[in-house]
Design a binder for these strands. Sequence first.
DNA 1: CTGTGTGAAGCGATTCACAGCG
DNA 2: CGCTGTGAATCGCTTCACACAG
Lengths: 258, 258
Amino acid sequence: MATGRTHRPATRSRGIPEATVARLPLYLRALTGLSERSVPTVSSEELAAAAGVNSAKLRKDFSYLGSYGTRGVGYDVEYLVYQISRELGLTQDWPVVIVGIGNLGAALANYGGFASRGFRVAALIDADPAMAGKPVAGIPVQHSDDLERIISDNGVSIGVIATPAGAAQPVCDRLVAAGVTSILNFAPTVLSVPDGVDVRKVDLSIELQILAFHEQRKAGEESAAAHDGAVPESVGHDVVAHDTDQGPDGDVPAVMPA
Amino acid sequence: MATGRTHRPATRSRGIPEATVARLPLYLRALTGLSERSVPTVSSEELAAAAGVNSAKLRKDFSYLGSYGTRGVGYDVEYLVYQISRELGLTQDWPVVIVGIGNLGAALANYGGFASRGFRVAALIDADPAMAGKPVAGIPVQHSDDLERIISDNGVSIGVIATPAGAAQPVCDRLVAAGVTSILNFAPTVLSVPDGVDVRKVDLSIELQILAFHEQRKAGEESAAAHDGAVPESVGHDVVAHDTDQGPDGDVPAVMPA
DNA sequence: CTGTGTGAAGCGATTCACAGCG
DNA sequence: CGCTGTGAATCGCTTCACACAG
């Protein structure tokens, strides 16, 4: 599984760090909120607070996109919304299919955050014949036998897997074979995909386990703190309180040979 | 300023890197699978492949926990499962409450990955009076008026927020005031919490936006380089290509026939 | 004078490569 | 030998601090 990966210098000038890309949606959301309240401009300090990051990081992030701010003033909200949207590729329509319409799949189908950002649920697919035709979130569920046709008819390149763990890899293989090149995986499995296919996963139990780790440590320090006569519950010294970042990462495709 | 930050270097002895902590659940899952198939030992290479990381990283990660392997042989699966579980604090019971029982909340309540890892859904809470008493996943939904009592009666320290965006911060404030010190947030909002409270977030639309960014770039390179006829080895499902890290994840397969 | 944009320093995580245990 | 465990090199992100545009 060596997985040859041709990590290139990234597209010369368009080399935006992965960590920055992961924060752009965050800025975009904060900006959208400001936009709705008709705020014309924001300083890096204000926007950073709204997005939950520090201002130096935000300015550095924006510097990768270009010089969209005005010194001494700040950033034009509308303009920035547009620039970030364009950078993320949200100015175009992304048809998405959701495979596995259980509780989670239904929740995803109903999630409004999709439509509002250039994503369109093109189809819902499930392996259960009894589900076929039944509408979920106003969209009729289709049987997985038609998966390939659905992908190609709709020009889908992004697929969401919300099936049980056992079905994830087979579904993934079919999606990829049918032309999908980006997958968001909710099943608790490590998916194998060919180079050029991007996979991101969302795993609830992992998040909880990470929380448990910190929680356990807090409990430990609590009793250890009592040792050196520290304050009981109050504002003693900061407990764990690590930053809220947590969300970076991502993977880089690596299409085409160098 | 939203959340307080105050990153602490972490105590030297118990200093496990955050990135390592985030991968432990991944190793644990892979090990559990091996354990179920009664595999007695694994090499770092094999386990790394199963977890989707590279072996050097895995060995380094384990080195922070101690020397649990046998040179020339590998790691004892059962022993490692125990050590990692203990390190993550999964050998104890973690009562969890889920607030906001909509589609997503219901999916979470039905998720089996909870119980199997030391997490116990102690209560489901929703603001809709009509939901009160209605059982979801076998657990009766309780009204949010009783939130504080529920938290304290059950000694809950971990809360999951699956409410609409607007309700998230108020719910968060009440959870924290009632004693919750770890929060897993599914609402698309930046939560403000006092120091000492840990927040992790899972945001579906952000994940999709990150995929869209890469997808857009692939499309661009595709026309720049020759399409198809790419790398020879990229046909079948090779391997996990890229670094699968991507930080957090969460999953939630729901119950449903396949 | 204010707040952006950015070189440079600082830091943590990843990767390398190999010593050495079994 | 094979495979773990780990110092050392490296890489990439974050943070600092300040020149300079408006």
